[in-house]
Amino acid sequence: MTPMDFLQLVRGPLFDIALTIFIFGVLLRLFEIIILDRKRDLSEARGGEFIAGSKTIFRRFKPDREKLQHSPVPTILGYIFHLGFFICLLFFIPHIELIHSALGVSWPGLPNFLVDVVALITMGALVGLFLYRLTNPLLRFLSSFQDYFLLVVVFLTLATGYIAFHHIIEPYPLALGLHLLSVELLLVIFPFTKLMHTFTVFLGRYYNGAMAGRRGVQS
């Protein structure tokens, strides 16, 4: 198989398969959660659920004193990683073209050198998170294979993107193909791992905020 054959494969059928599994899995998981439903709370409400729940979704995006003070390393590295990852994903112009072609929406991108710097910082944060998970006794205790594995897979998507962008591996079709392959791996495992938190975090925060809001507490 030549590098071009490989690129055609990952840009073609493999991408289609990965995208199908991703969408299938995410919807499957979300339906499995939502259909379980929750019992109607019969206690007399002190506050509304909807506004409090919606507020919690946004409030917990903000870094608070509690996390910064008691868990500074995962908090700071976590923010850098998430922000960086989404900047690379959503503001690199080739990615915007992809989203535009699939969904028909588009927005202004960032200059490539900025994305480049962000990608490096993000990879740095991922390495930091990996080392922290490996060396911190608490995180080491809590971590399963999946926790390390996913850090590696996410790192690979960034690293292969960086490699393709800078033509570090030649020929380019091979580098771009590896990037797409790592993204496809991410898409395929996404619905069956904790990566699902990307979606369920909104559900979870809403439930938490709604249940607390009902009792008059903004969580």
Binding site: R11, G12, D16, I17, T20, I23, P94
Partner: peptide, 15 residues
Amino acid sequence: LSIPINDPAAAIGIG
């Protein structure tokens, strides 16, 4: 170049 070769509609639809 970053756009996959095939139209994603089928993949999205099946998914």
